[in-house]
Design a protein around this nucleic acid. Structure first.
Length: 481
RNA sequence: GGCCCCAUCGUCUAACGGUUAGGACAUCGGGUUUUCAAUCCGGUAAUCAGAGUUCGAUUCUCUGUGGGGUCACCA
C-alpha cells in the first residue's frame, strides 16, 4: 500500500474524479456510494468532481433520469464542479452530444490498425457462438477476424483489435495489484451500428479528454479492465488511477444490491425524512473505515478522514437498523431550533404545538416517523379527550374505590397549582408526594396517565398534563372518576 | 464452466507477526421509568477448514470450502 501512496504523492496533476451514471432510472444506494467516494476524494484533494451522463444506450434510457440523478446528488449535497447543467471546460457532459469526439478517436484507432469494421450479421455471429458451444470452447471473436475488413462507414460496428494476449497486471489504489488472464481479452465493439459508442470506448475517451486522474468505479469493472488498458495503450495514453469499490449487498440475499433486488430510489430516503448527512455517513462507512472507534462523522470530518487505502475489499450488507441509529445520532447533532422546525414541519398544521417536540423527538429515528405517529393516532390524545374502557384505569388489583379516591386527591392537589405554574416539575412534585404515600406509585400514576392518554403506551402523566394544560387535565381526571 | 476477487461476533468493522481479539448496530438482562420510548450499566456472540513458515499466525504461503463479480452492438 505504501507504494501506491507515494505514487499518489508524486502525481503533480490536480485530482479530477467523476461520477458517470447512465440515465436508466433512479439512483440507488450502490451508485450513490460510488459517487460519494469520488466526491470525497476530490474534495479532500481540492480537486474537481465531474458529473457526466453516459447515455449511449438509447434503448435503456428512461426519460427524466438525468433530472432525477441530479436531484438525488443535490439532496445529498454531492455538488459537482462540471456537469450537464452547469457546463465546464469540456462541455458538453452528455455523451450523446459528444459523438463527433468518439468518431475522431475511432479514426485514430483505425489508422493505427487497432480497430476494424465488423462485417458479420448478427446471425453469423450467433452461429460462431453455437459452434463454439458444441465444441465446448469459449467463443472468441478474435478467432473470426475478417481477413479483409471493409472500410468502416458507420453503418456497421467498429471493433477494437486486441494485439497483445498476455496476463494483464495493473495497480488499483484500493486493492493493490490486480490481474486478469488473456482469456478475458477479445475484440470488442467500440462503436455500435447505431453510431453510438459503447461504454468501453466512450468512458475512456471522455476520461482522457476531461483529464480524469482517478476513476472511481464499482468492482464489476475489474474484469473488463484489461480491455480498457488495451485501448489506452493503443491510443498511447497513460491510464488513470483505478479506484475500485466493493459492492453493497442486499439485506436478504447475498447478491449485489440492484434495482431488481428491491434497491430503493435514494430519494425515497429523503421522503422518509432521513438526513442527507446521516445517509452520507452511513454509506461512507459501508465499505470504508478510517480506524478508531468514532462512527458519527459530519460531512467535513468525513472529507478530512477519507482515505482510499482504507476502503474494504469485500461486499457489505445494507442495514436499515444501523442507518436509523446513525440518523438519530445526526439528529442529535442538530440545534434545538432545527429539530423543532423539522418536527413541526412534519406535523399536520393543526398539531403544530412546540410543546410536542420533545415528546415526539424521543420516539423517532427519522422525520418520517413523526408522520407515522400521527397516522397511527398516537398523538390524538393531546388534542381531544381519549375514549377508553374504564377497566383500563385500574392498576393491577387495586380496588376501583381506591382509584377514585386517589384521583380525587390528585385533582385537589393539581387544582392548587396556578395555571401559569402548571409545569412538568411542579406537577411531578405534587403527584409524587401523593404517590409515594401509597402502596405502589402505580395506584395513582397509572390511572392518571391512562385517563389523560387512553393508551397503553404513552409519555409520562406529568408531561401530558403540562402539555394539555390545567383545565383539560382536571376535566379528564374528573371524567375518569 | 473459464477468468478475477473476497473471507473476524447475526450485521458493519478494529487489531507494526505477540491484545483477555476492541468498538458500533441488533439481541438479551438489570437500574431509572405506572407503561412504552429514551437513557445508563452489564451479558451472549467472531478470526471458514486443513497444512506450511515462525519461538509465536486473525495477520505471511499453499490447498480446500464458501461467497461475490464478469464473460453483450448494457453500463
Amino acid at each position: 500500500m505504501l507504494k501506491y501512496n507515494s505514487m499518489l504523492e508524486k502525481a503533480t496533476k490536480k485530482v479530477v474524479t467523476r461520477f458517470a451514471p447512465s440515465p436508466t432510472g433512479f439512483m440507488h444506494v450502490g451508485g450513490v456510494r460510488t459517487a460519494l467516494y469520488a466526491w470525497l476524494f476530490a474534495r479532500k484533494n481540492n480537486g474537481q468532481f465531474i458529473l457526466r451522463i453516459e447515455d449511449t444506450d438509447k434503448e435503456r434510457e428512461v426519460a427524466g433520469s438525468i433530472e432525477h440523478i441530479q436531484k438525488s446528488l443535490k439532496w445529498l449535497g454531492l455538488n459537482w464542479d462540471q456537469g450537464p447543467d452547469i457546463g465546464g471546460p469540456f462541455a458538453p457532459y452528455i455523451q450523446s452530444e459528444r459523438l463527433e469526439l468518439y468518431k475522431k478517436y475511432a479514426e485514430i484507432l483505425i489508422k493505427k490498425g487497432s480497430a476494424y469494421a465488423d462485417p458479420y450479421a448478427e446471425k453469423e455471429i450467433e452461429e460462431f457462438k453455437k459452434k463454439a458451444e458444441i465444441e465446448k470452447k469459449p467463443f472468441l471473436y478474435r478467432e473470426h477476424r475478417p481477413e479483409n475488413p471493409p472500410v468502416w462507414d458507420g453503418t456497421m460496428p467498429l471493433r477494437f483489435k486486441v494485439s497483445e494476449l498476455k496476463q494483464a497486471v495493473w495497480n488499483d489504489l484500493v486493492w493493490g495489484e490486480l490481474s486478469a488472464g488473456p482469456e478475458a481479452l477479445d475484440d470488442f465493439i467500440l462503436i455500435k451500428s447505431d453510431g453510438y459508442p459503447t461504454y468501453n470506448f466512450a468512458h475512456i475517451v471522455d476520461d482522457i479528454e476531461m483529464g480524469v486522474t482517478h476513476v472511481v468505479r464499482g468492482q464489476e469493472f475489474i474484469s473488463s479492465t484489461p480491455k480498457f488498458l488495451a485501448v489506452y495503450k493503443a491510443l498511447g495514453v497513460m491510464p488513470p488511477y483505478f479506484v475500485t469499490t466493493p459492492p453493497i449487498m442486499g439485506i436478504e440475499g447475498k447478491k449485489k444490491l440492484s434495482k431488481r433486488d428491491g434497491a430503493k430510489d435514494i430519494l425515497e430516503y429523503e421522503k422518509e425524512g432521513y438526513l442527507p448527512d446521516a445517509m452520507i455517513n452511513y454509506l461512507a462507512f459501508l465499505g470504508f473505515n478510517p480506524g478508531g472507534e468514532k462512527e458519527v462523522y459530519t460531512r467535513d470530518e468525513l472529507i478530512n478522514v477519507f482515505d482510499l487505502t482504507k476502503i474494504q475489499h469485500s461486499g457489505a450488507k445494507w442495514s436499515d437498523d444501523k442507518l436509523n441509529w446513525l440518523n438519530k445520532e445526526h439528529i442529535k447533532l442538530l440545534s434545538q431550533a432545527e429539530i423543532e422546525k423539522n418536527i413541526l414541519e412534519w406535523l399536520p398544521e393543526k398539531m403544530r404545538n412546540p410543546k410536542l417536540v420533545h415528546v415526539v423527538l424521543e420516539r423517532i429515528s427519522k422525520w418520517g416517523d413523526v408522520k407515522e405517529m400521527v397516522e397511527k393516532g398516537e398523538l390524538d390524545f393531546f388534542f381531544k379527550q381519549p375514549s377508553y374502557s374504564k377497566e383500563k384505569l385500574i392498576f393491577k388489583n387495586t380496588l376501583p374505590e381506591k382509584i377514585s379516591e386517589n384521583l380525587n386527591q390528585a385533582i385537589k392537589a393539581l387544582g392548587g397549582i396556578e395555571e401559569e405554574n402548571f409545569t412538568v416539575e411542579n406537577i411531578k412534585n405534587v403527584l409524587m408526594t401523593i404517590a409515594d404515600k401509597l402502596d405502589s406509585r402505580g395506584e395513582l400514576l397509572h390511572p392518571i396517565r391512562f385517563a389523560l392518554s387512553g393508551l397503553d403506551k404513552s409519555p409520562d402523566p406529568f408531561t401530558i398534563a403540562s402539555i394539555i394544560g390545567k383545565n383539560e387535565t382536571l376535566l379528564r381526571l374528573q371524567k375518569a372518576i
